Computed example of a mutant assay.
Amino acid sequence: MSALSGSRNPAWVRALLSQWWVAPLTRLALVSAWLIGGVNKALHFGSAIAEQAHFGLHPPALWAALAVVVEIGGSVCVVLRRFTWLGAGGLGMLTVVAILVANDFWNQTGTPRFIALNSFFEHMGLIAALVLATMLGDVQPESGNSRA
């Protein structure tokens, strides 16, 4: 059964969403921040270690290596729809850690609190999108549309 069958969306929305390229492009867009971040950390590993130390994560080299593996590996899992639950779960857990160490609005006041609070809820939205991607990963595409 497709996620689109029985949809109450207008016909033009269903037609757009049923295009073979929409789902993979959407998955790539969803994980783009993690994928680019992981590649950037891998290419500039010293800076990645410094970032982890800045946020108080020790040992920083281990946290930096873990971030690289999870950001790249998890992104690839989501984009390719292989072990989506594992990739999205890893990205979600990494994001929870980031929320707790970098967006601790409860410890701030004024403008920094405002910025951290907004970032906190943006990251919560990304975690929710990863959950949805995992849920939709179980939905089988309509016959003849196996590239989704």
Rank of each mutant, 00 (worst) to 15 (best):
148 A>D: 07
48 A>I: 04
96 V>N: 10
46 G>A: 04
19 Q>T: 11
84 T>K: 05
18 S>V: 00
94 L>P: 02
54 H>V: 03
1 M>R: 01
101 V>I: 15
112 P>F: 08
113 R>A: 15
25 L>W: 02
82 R>E: 10
117 L>Y: 14
72 I>H: 07
13 V>F: 01
79 V>R: 00
105 F>I: 03
48 A>G: 14
108 Q>N: 05
39 V>N: 06
28 L>M: 08
117 L>C: 07
87 G>T: 09
60 P>I: 07
54 H>W: 07
130 L>P: 02
85 W>Y: 05
56 G>I: 08
113 R>Y: 11
31 V>C: 03
1 M>F: 01
49 I>Q: 07
134 T>C: 11
128 A>C: 10
110 G>C: 10
82 R>D: 04
42 A>S: 14
120 F>S: 01
25 L>S: 14
94 L>Q: 15
91 L>S: 06
24 P>S: 02
32 S>N: 03
142 E>T: 06
56 G>Q: 12
40 N>R: 06
54 H>G: 12
101 V>W: 10
53 A>K: 07
44 H>G: 11
35 L>P: 04
43 L>K: 05
35 L>D: 04
29 A>G: 06
56 G>S: 13
32 S>C: 04
139 V>Q: 14
47 S>P: 00
126 L>D: 00
43 L>V: 09
123 H>Y: 00
140 Q>Y: 06
18 S>T: 00
107 N>G: 05
82 R>V: 14
4 L>T: 02
116 A>W: 00
146 S>F: 08
20 W>Q: 09
89 G>A: 12
77 C>D: 12
95 T>H: 03
8 R>N: 15
105 F>E: 06
3 A>V: 06
104 D>R: 13
144 G>H: 08
62 L>W: 11
77 C>G: 11
44 H>E: 10
40 N>M: 08
143 S>F: 03
14 R>V: 15
103 N>H: 15
145 N>A: 10
58 H>G: 00
